[in-house]
Design a protein around this nucleic acid. Structure first.
Length: 421
DNA sequence: TCTGGGGTCCTAGGACCC
DNA sequence: TCTGGGGTCCTAGGACCC
């Protein structure tokens, strides 16, 4: 028995996924760009060594990429999502105590696993992931999730460790002292300056804070941080089956637009996608919001947010989009170049128990009809391909669709894009 | 010309109640 | 004229994460 946590953290995840099907790129500088080919979200070691920062705007680096022979990809989220699922399924074969923390990281509770030497256990897991899935990972092992994150950070940067670090009581002080404040899980760009002003510069300094003072500096969160860094766990492995609390779906437009028709097409398409996720997870939304803004990098930046109540709760994209657009239209008069639009669904509830309103009662027949229509659409789309049946408004314009000119094939999720040997 | 997308949690303050 | 104390709930905004 042990109360240890492991963090499995993929190295340069998006780049590693691209290399999986392009071994010819193994020693090349590679970057992967965000949606709309906007900025750099993943870099190979070679690209990092050249000094390309995370989040670098792609347009500023176009010449740099060319001059340094950097291979550039648009993000291929279908591929990354699929590889991520494979990793998760491998980890779940070791123990059910797995928390998918993000697309490229997972926590594993080690209580149910027996091993004499955790460092060796980590090495073997790492080797096996490399063999079975083909993605390099770093592994941190410690008594708390915060320390496991910290261990993985060092495992990535210290070649002698071979990609795995277990923080045991003898070595822990050294690594805490060597961890800059900003690298602690839970200390971001706002807290860091506040802590520095109080003379706190490393993870060891934070660990040594008096809990009351930590709470003054960082709120409740600070107290937990001190205890987590001291080896007292306050964050257990989270249950991935907990229903989600909100769904947000948005896009920056391929080009700015003043055209209401384009806004409509974007809003309906994004709402349809968001409500499809809702239905797949057996949820209904009680509230929806639409968020639209101009380019925040240009002067005169403005944004609008309209929220509506959904009575009864629904997963019907057409009806939600219609109400949202109606609400938005009332607020927007001038012709403005819009840059980005998002849909938010929240106050989610299970579709098993439908709470109908007493006052604004809608006929049960009507609700049932909408449910059957959505079911029919979903089953047609499952059978014949996504978006085979869709709202006409989705096709009013495609000009808002983001650019992804340099996307690699969806090797593992599209029959027509299978790799050819 | 060109700068991403999707989440969760905590807190402060206001409205309202007795 | 004077104007307490304590509680709950909701929301917007801020902070964090990847």
């Amino acid at each position: 028995m042990s109360n240890l946590f492991a963090l499995i953290d993929c190295d340069n995840f998006f780049v590693s996924c691209e290399r999986l099907f392009r071994p010819d790129l193994n020693c090349r500088g590679i970057v992967v760009l965000s949606s709309n080919d906007g900025c750099v979200v993943s870099r190979s070691q070679e690209a990092k060594a050249l000094g390309i920062p995370m989040g670098a705007p792609a347009f500023l680096y176009r010449h740099f990429f060319r001059d340094h022979d950097i291979v550039v990809f648009s993000a291929n989220f279908e591929l990354y999502g699929d590889i991520s699922r494979r990793l998760l399924s491998y980890l779940t074969s070791l123990t059910p105590s797995v928390e998918a923390y993000s697309v490229d990281e997972a926590f594993v509770g080690l209580a149910g696993i027996t091993a004499h030497n955790w460092q060796k256990w980590g090495q073997s897991v790492r080797t096996e992931i490399n063999r079975e899935i083909g993605i390099p990972v770093s592994i941190g092992i410690a008594n708390t999730k915060t320390l496991a994150k910290l261990a993985a950070w060092h495992a990535k940067r210290t070649p002698d460790l071979g990609g795995v670090l277990q923080l045991d009581p003898t070595g822990i002080m050294h690594y805490l002292a060597e961890t800059p404040l900003e690298e602690i899980w839970g200390v971001g760009r706002r807290l860091a300056p506040r802590l520095k002003a109080a003379g706190v510069h490393t993870a060891l300094d934070v660990q040594r804070l008096r809990p009351r003072f930590a709470e003054q500096l960082m709120g409740l969160h600070g107290r937990q941080l001190v205890s987590e860094l001291s080896g007292q766990s306050s964050h257990p492995i989270a249950d991935n089956n907990q229903p989600r609390k909100s769904i947000m779906h948005g896009r920056m437009f391929g080009e700015d637009t003043t055209d209401w028709t384009v806004i409509e097409a974007a809003a309906v398409t994004l709402t349809a996608k968001a409500t499809l996720r809702l239905r797949r997870e057996g949820l209904l939304a009680k509230r929806a919001g639409i968020f639209i803004s101009t380019n925040r990098h240009k002067p005169g930046y403005r944004r609008w947010f309209e929220q509506i109540r959904l009575e009864p709760p629904t997963a019907d994209g057409g009806s939600i989009a219609e109400q949202l657009l109606l609400a938005l239209r009332k607020e927007i008069h001038a012709t403005i170049a819009f840059h980005r639009l998002s849909i938010l669904l929240d106050e989610l509830t299970s579709d098993k128990w439908l709470q109908t309103s007493l006052l604004k009662s809608q006929s049960p027949q009507l609700i049932a009809l909408s449910g059957r229509r959505l079911q029919a659409v979903d089953s047609l789309n499952n059978r014949y391909g996504p978006r085979m049946v869709r709202y006409a408004a989705e096709d009013l314009s495609a000009s808002w669709q983001p650019k992804r000119a340099l996307r690699s094939p969806r090797y593992t999720t599209e029959w027509s894009e299978l790799p050819i040997i």
